[in-house]
Design a binder for these strands. Structure first.
Lengths: 257, 257
DNA sequence: CGGCAAATTGAAGTATTTCAACGTCGGTGG
DNA sequence: CCACCGACGTTGAAATACTTCAATTTGCCG
């Protein structure tokens, strides 16, 4: 399950993964107002339309940010991992619901206090700005992935995004001798919604990629990426940098053995 | 290269549409460092990979933010209108290119000076934070639109997004007696890339919506939305608020006659 | 008026969706 | 402990939607 972190609040360095570049005194202030919360897989952290009165910062585990459509379908617009913030600062309604995709732990900062500290601490404000900027980049990457016409391409893009974004986090991504192993934190149905298709198509496309030897389906939610470059090609990947990075990870791993 | 004709700068209240809620002195400082630039439709404002040394704020016209894929295709990830910012603050590379979708005018703030002022002016920092937050919301809306399986649904979502986001701006959206008239600022090819399909499909889906009476194609780039609710249904629209707002706009217009 | 780019239309080929059925796994209760 | 159920993933086959390639039309600019 989740880490065996001390339960009590106000322990030093609580927000470690969250804000890396802020002054010690700002961090102390943050720690002082923070309260650690834990949710089990499947629990709702924030309900749609009900603007939360806190700002959250993920410590461990994965949260799904989603919108509930008219017909009740849940539509994921992002996965939150260690270091990510959620909730709304200074602004209007938070229009999404947040649900635990795995068991999770996060810091909860009372909204008013957080905003107050934000106004007083330029370093924190900058950290938040950077955080949101990153989030924006991620959303744009999603857009590009989603605009791939072929399902297999979208899946390839999704897998690569998992690697490049969640690479050093939790145990989602593990480099092995044969390739990179990715743990998919959501069900086929959710993945289908996320990628704009249906679970049957996800299944078929995934198995098609496997038949071509680009991936290996070790378990339905554990995929081994064998040929990064082929995946990048399938995904129309434009960031050779990502590919290069991932390949480096692999070769290093190979040498280590 | 591009005729970035810096015309007269330092005129009072230049940034009016850009930051509405900042202190007069901050605005003065902004105006003092700002330089107005104008580009004609089709010109490149920022080239891929070449991190610009300025932050831009759109005054009028429309810019397209796009990524160039390996095969040279241009992939739009957002349209910038009056009041939108672009460029990077405090952070890594700006990975997109920016091109004028119509003739445009924007403020250009030297990056270093802008960041300096940002650090000194909490009100500006907040304004920027809000701006980026909005941008993030928009990107997430795009994600939801893009994950619609049917092309017609994506187009419907696109048209509604145009209305709700660009409603009071430029002359993109005009309420009329018969419905809302939307001017599409990009070509079919670009729209196709944006929506993850091909121009032929865009054309067919658009004409299908017209055959059903939901829209009317007055010119290829001028669409009259006749039945907002039908469009919302086609788009799987979850924001009844948007729909309600648009319908209000319409009925007010009708009364006015 | 000719020429070009953009938009549209047609027809054939692919890919995806849909509906239905089956297998697996984990939990529950007899 | 085993049978059963329900959730999930997978597979098959037919229906549908989209893409592709080719041809045609439209509108604009020189």
């Amino acid at each position: 399950m989740a880490n065996d972190t001390p339960t009590g609040a106000h322990v030093g360095m609580i927000g470690s993964p969250i804000f890396s570049d802020i002054k010690p005194e700002t961090r102390d202030a943050l720690d002082a107002m923070c309260r650690i919360k834990r949710f089990r897989k499947g629990q709702i952290v924030v309900q749609d339309e009900e603007s939360p009165n806190f700002v959250g910062g993920v410590l461990s585990g994965i949260l799904r940010m989603q919108k509930t459509l008219l017909d009740g379908r849940q539509h994921i617009v992002g996965l939150l991992v260690e270091g990510d913030l959620f909730g709304r600062v200074f602004d209007g309604a938070f229009e999404y619901s947040v649900e635990a995709a795995t068991d999770v732990e996060f810091c909860s900062f009372p909204r008013a206090a957080f905003e107050g500290l934000l106004s007083r601490s330029p370093d924190l404000e900058r950290a938040v700005l950077l955080n949101i900027t990153n989030e924006l980049d991620r959303a744009r990457e999603w857009m590009i992935i989603l605009s791939n016409q072929k399902i297999a391409g979208r899946i390839a893009g999704f897998l690569l995004l998992m690697c490049s974004r969640f690479g050093r986090i939790d145990h989602i991504v593990e480099p092995t001798v044969d390739g990179i192993e990715v743990k998919i934190p959501i069900s086929r149905l959710d993945l289908a919604h996320l990628l704009g298709t249906r679970p049957e198509s996800i299944s078929r496309a995934l198995h098609a990629l496997a038949d071509e030897g680009h991936i290996e389906i070790q378990e339905p939610d554990r995929i081994l990426l064998r040929d990064i470059e082929a995946l990048a090609k399938a995904a129309d990947e434009d960031e050779m940098q990502t590919v290069a990075t991932l390949k480096d990870v692999l070769s290093v791993k190979r040498l280590k053995r």
